[in-house]
Amino acid sequence: MKAFVTGGTGYTGGALCTRLAEQGHQVRALARKTSKTDQLRDRGIEIIFGDVRDIDSLRPAMKDVDVLFHLAALYRQAGFPEHIYHDIHIKGTENMLQVALEEGVKRFIHCSTIGVLGHISNPPANEETPYNPGDIYQITKMEGEKLALRYFREKNLPVTVIRPAAIYGPGDMRMLKLFRSIAKGRFVILGSGETTYHQVYIDDLITGFLLGAEKDVAIGQIYIIGGEEYVTLNQLTTMIAHDLGVSPPKLHLPVKPFQWLGPLVESVCIPLRIEPPIHRRRVDFFTKSRAFDISRAKRDLGYQPQYDLKTGIHLTAQWYRERGYLN
């Protein structure tokens, strides 16, 4: 098939482009001119320069495309005004949907996030759990997801929504801080550590995307793609510590002061373009549970995670260790 991937220069998008190319598909990736594209080019992937916010740049990219994987997103980080999230996750998604409709794209795979469900008070949540976003990233991702489903209902665009759990694996840099702080014995748990966390190994997630593109039953549906198990933060940090050969984190601090300090520190640091040492999304990691039922993906798509959490942690830690990132 001819596949088009937005967000192809990112961690997940790059892994998806690689798998598609390895399977013999023709792969085209959207990239901004400032993005690093050498690795994608080396894999035989065609690069189209453009931006999801610029609809005119999307039309040449979607000519003769069979399957479109829309992964482009702005992940939560301090310093970006709210309208940027709106422009990328909502307006950018609408641009993608409109051009896909115009060009007759046969399948539109939209990457959302489990974050649209926010804190899971009665785990595990599933695809029918009501929306409950908790920040601007989650709110705008929710609106982008709703747009995609609306194009299916009202305009018959063959859309499938994939909601990944927390993505990790070799090459991922977002989990590095957690692994490194545990390796150095510096990780502090805020609160009880009994909130839940649900991850998905990168290879399993890519399989989920491809199954969503292949199965006709997936059209018009939402699928949560996660690992086989979710664990508490205490369990997760203990598993990482054991793999690294260090003692598990034992220090717990009350979470309330940090919940109060987060917005205050952000209000001082963000105008100065300084990354806040404490901010709300990091505190949310300790206070908001993430636990999901993946049975719909198993039933409809034949999805079956191949990497248990222990194996995934080991492979990720090994990748960090080999590159000296844990020193």
Rank of each mutant, 00 (worst) to 15 (best):
C111M: 14
T113R: 02
G115E: 11
V116N: 09
L117T: 06
I120P: 02
S121Q: 13
N122A: 13
P123A: 09
P124Y: 11
N126K: 05
E127C: 02
T129Q: 02
P130M: 12
P130E: 07
Y131G: 02
Y131D: 02
P133S: 06
P133M: 03
G134S: 03
G134H: 08
G134K: 00
I136C: 10
I136W: 01
Q138A: 14
T140R: 01
T140G: 02
T140I: 06
K141R: 13
E143F: 07
G144P: 08
E145S: 09
E145C: 01
E145M: 08
A148L: 05
A148D: 07
L149R: 03
L149G: 05
L149P: 04
Y151I: 05
F152K: 03
R153P: 00
R153Q: 14
R153D: 12
K155D: 08
N156W: 03
N156P: 01
V159K: 07
T160W: 06
T160I: 10
R163H: 12
Y168T: 04
D172L: 02
M173C: 00
R174W: 08
R174K: 13
R174S: 15
L178F: 11
L178V: 15
F179V: 07
R180I: 03
R180T: 06
R180G: 00
S181V: 02
I182F: 11
I182Y: 09
A183C: 11
K184P: 00
R186T: 06
F187D: 01
F187T: 01
V188R: 10
G191T: 07
S192D: 11
S192K: 12
S192C: 02
S192V: 06
E194V: 02
T195C: 06
T195A: 08
T196Q: 14
H198W: 04
H198G: 01
I202D: 03
D203N: 12
D204M: 04
L205S: 03
T207N: 15
T207H: 13
G208D: 10
G208K: 08
G208N: 09
F209Q: 09
L211W: 05
L211G: 07
L211K: 11
A213G: 12
D216G: 09
V217E: 15
A218N: 07
I219C: 00
I219T: 14
G220H: 02
Q221H: 11
Q221R: 13
Y223I: 06
I225N: 06
I225F: 09
I225V: 14
G227Y: 05
E228S: 14
E229H: 12
Y230H: 14
Y230D: 01
T232H: 10
T232D: 03
T232C: 07
L233I: 14
N234T: 13
Q235P: 01
Q235M: 07
T237L: 05
T238H: 12
T238I: 00
T238W: 00
M239Q: 13
I240R: 05
A241L: 09
A241Y: 03
A241R: 10
H242E: 15
D243E: 15
L244M: 11
L244N: 03
L244K: 08
G245T: 01
G245C: 09
V246T: 13
V246F: 11
S247N: 11
S247V: 08
P248M: 11
P248L: 06
K250Q: 14
K250E: 13
L251H: 02
H252I: 06
H252T: 10
